[in-house]
Design a protein around this nucleic acid. Structure first.
Lengths: 178, 178
DNA sequence: GTTCACATGTAAGTTGTTACATGATTGT
DNA sequence: ACAATCATGTAACAACTTACATGTGAAC
């Protein structure tokens, strides 16, 4: 459900049509998330019904219709509420990235708490994976099948290490008062 | 749809009940994927209908019912077909990890091609991200908002670098004849 | 006797994907 | 004229999540 908050963030940066949003989305959030245009149109419709967005229909000259969506105060409040709220459902790592982008446009400073929560979580998981690695894959004479299983575990370990490196980098950034 | 192939792989390693599968799944594939028990029961039912699995119903003594699923030849053939077939829909990175596990149990040696295909893809993406970084975030006087946007891009860059490190590690493994 | 792990399922709702459908503007 | 890009939507389906529902066996 945080696709809505990703869209709110994008729309606060600049009011846009669904089409324009889909394109910008691929460039600004595309590093970690893709949304199809159908998803975007559906969510825009819902958020307009909730009163989070204003729709301005343009019939610019001829027949080409465009709908420009702009975030209303209720939408901004919803985004503020969501950025400050910890966890929630769905992928928390992705949600954190959206929260950082949202902070950039809202000017708040609350995402650091969520970052710390996820750091603890990832650290625990990494420790677990390393224990499994030591226990099951530290022998010198592993079979080919075992080495393949090890490779799958390695992906998990390297992914956690990489995430934690990024998290430290980002934590330094949040501590500075820019 | 490759949840089916993940389950086939697990069941080839050991025939199990849906419940047992759900638990083992969290430990063997849990590094990159979680499946709820409802998903598992549904897919087991479908695969049994397809004739990929045999179901042995146990009414062990009293009333406790268990269904033990075992992979039939048709299921093994399907897994063989899928492992060799490139790409397909869904997350290709996750699918590769399942393919590696499947190779461990099938004894095939075809996943290397898919690994190379994904390496090329990830390399291209990483280059693109680095270009964006240089173009938009190499100045010394970035605002706080810009630095947050940079952090989001950094996650993408570090994730790609980490994936490629893993891929090189894994490629060496596949080249050795274990 | 009550909690925990085992074990399986239905139902409803949300989200995501794929296919189909339409029409205008811009550039060649 | 024709293709590409802009622009929006419906419909059907597939996948996934959450809640509800049930019952056994073992341990404490």
């Amino acid at each position: 459900m945080s696709i809505q908050h990703a869209l709110l963030t994008s729309l606060l940066e600049r009011p846009s049509s669904g089409y324009g949003l889909a394109n910008r989305f691929d460039h600004s959030m595309g590093y970690f998330w893709h949304a199809s245009h159908q998803q975007i149109y559906r969510e825009l419709g819902r958020m307009a019904q909730h009163g989070w967005l204003a729709v301005e229909e343009q019939e610019s000259g001829g027949g080409r219709r465009r709908k420009i969506y702009r975030v209303l105060e209720a939408g901004r409040q919803e985004l503020l509420r969501w950025v400050a709220e910890p966890g929630g459902s769905g992928n928390a790592d992705q949600a954190l990235l959206i929260r950082l982008r949202a902070e950039a446009v809202l000017g708040t400073r609350v995402a650091g708490r969520e970052l710390q929560r996820l750091i603890d979580q990832h650290r625990t998981r990494l420790e677990l994976y390393r224990e499994i690695e030591q226990r099951d894959f530290s022998a010198a004479d592993l079979t080919h099948a075992q080495r393949l299983q090890h490779a799958v575990l390695r992906r998990g370990i390297l992914a956690e290490e990489s995430w934690l490196r990024w998290a430290r980098e980002t934590q330094l950034l949040l501590v500075e008062q820019g």
